[in-house]
Design a protein around this nucleic acid. Sequence first.
DNA 1: CTGTTAGCGCTTTCAT
DNA 2: ATGAAAGCGCTAACAG
Lengths: 337, 337
Amino acid sequence: MSATIRDVARRAGVGLGTVSRVLNNSPLVSDATRQRVLDVIAELDYAPSHVARNLSLGRTQTIAAIAPFFTRPSVVERLRGAEATLAGSPYDLVVFNVESVERRNSCLQTVPRRDRYDGLLLISLAPQPAEVAAMRSAGVPVVVIDKTVPDLPCVTIDDQAGGHMATYHLINLGHRRIAYLSDPLRDPLNFEFTSSQDRYLGYRKALANAGISFRDDYHVSGPHDRYEARVLAQRLLAMDEPPTAIFAASDTQAMGVLEAARDCRLRVPHDLSVIGFDDIDVAAYLNLTTIRQPLFETGARGVEMLLTMLENPDRTHSNERLPVSLVVRGTTAPVAG
Amino acid sequence: MSATIRDVARRAGVGLGTVSRVLNNSPLVSDATRQRVLDVIAELDYAPSHVARNLSLGRTQTIAAIAPFFTRPSVVERLRGAEATLAGSPYDLVVFNVESVERRNSCLQTVPRRDRYDGLLLISLAPQPAEVAAMRSAGVPVVVIDKTVPDLPCVTIDDQAGGHMATYHLINLGHRRIAYLSDPLRDPLNFEFTSSQDRYLGYRKALANAGISFRDDYHVSGPHDRYEARVLAQRLLAMDEPPTAIFAASDTQAMGVLEAARDCRLRVPHDLSVIGFDDIDVAAYLNLTTIRQPLFETGARGVEMLLTMLENPDRTHSNERLPVSLVVRGTTAPVAG
DNA sequence: CTGTTAGCGCTTTCAT
DNA sequence: ATGAAAGCGCTAACAG
């Protein structure tokens, strides 16, 4: 079929090793020989076998990324950042999409194998201690994105600051009845997005700083989904003393809130202020005020960290926290009346 | 480091081949021996090397997918379908995101290598004849999704029927001044989505069937982007005799149209009917009438075809065309007055 | 500088 | 039924 290194060697009248040296830009080859080999390579349209080289070198040149819910715009952006960074390297990116607990578990168990992937990127997925231990003993470098996991290098954003920022913005506009709508705060499987937890902390802190007492019934949570958020928001808006502003833990959920406002014939931002989190693509379209987080950048940074870990196996990486920022658009306004 | 097949053989007191046979479920091994080997495998926590096996078998167990613009919801859905189908197979999916012509060319040139990937999935990307020839001579099975390419098995949707369906729906509602907003119809690089072309054909045909004469100025095109579409639509709506309905070649572009309508203080669907194409996730949220195409399914089907091609290399695959359907929501209504 | 040789870890004849 | 041996295509250590 395709030409091998042996064919090249024979045709060029040189030894096997010499061809290999040329391939690897070794300086231990005379210019004349190198040129002859290069010519034959071109002539035979030879390309070294990737697998063979990897077997010999004991690596795979592949890094795996496990991420939940491809469809989630935030996940796609992170993946995009990872892919873009890897594009400039010799590594391939293989992806695993996780949409069920079974799949999560099977991926986390089977993917971290040293003989299959040189590195592992965990996006919005936090392994259990036992799983972390397994990865360690498998010897696969791992970087976690969008989660903080003990004993593993992580790249996250300052969720608490973001939560604070969002709430503070609302308080600044004169709001006092501020609700928080999020994913469930605690999830035993670490499957859902626990960043909601930290944003909640920021929310609580901002409230406390402003001397506004926290109301338990102003905090609602449910699955990360527009429709669920809509129902949750409807419940909020149907209260005797409904909130004048809602902070949604994600733009997707904020969309549900906007939907609910429409259902209740409330005008945004006149009757209700809404702020989201993420600044995904549609946020601009919806003119949604939100907290921007550097999605693409976290993916890119995660890969960079992984790459330096691969180059320098003993260097241990600390966690990194990327900054968030407030993007004021049209869904927040001073409280009415 | 990790145990090899040799360690297992030695420890079990059997030959190398026997362990291999056990690994591959060969019937040519006695139950007793098999059990002994299995025990040792468990004891040593042995796992066969993926690369070594692949080198020996002359394959990679990896299929590559090249797709433009990860962020495009339609692309993500297709990728998701591909990944889901591959999840049930021993193949890995490595992805390449293309966002520039340079990258497109470099991917199309470097990725199709038999020694690197067992198969190739081209999503919304049509290779040139020379590129097709290169793939063929490289011996890599290829399936194209969302494009029709000569000499290559393709899975597409009936764009023309979709275009007809959309236009016909509008005509049925009494509209006669119907505009078509799309990507550029012809693209020398085959980089953009040429399906716009077929939808255009369907549009023209529906018009002709209804005895409505085509107006050249009712057809506008520009880059596949919400903002571009918005500008285009504004131009349309500023005409002396503006259209009463706009058919956008994608939901993303339809979003731009809705935006433009808002800019012009037009009420949808009262003053203007809008219909999109794709039925991406946000379409339901925006209550957008659209033509649904089976995005996930095309990705899944493409992988299925690739998989059968891998099993049966000589079997040649014909093109497949998946059906589209009309989803009536709230952005289309009978023409006013 | 360059040719030769010994693996990398597994599959697959080929004998036995 | 099972062991031994010959590759798969390449890299790297070893002689010259």
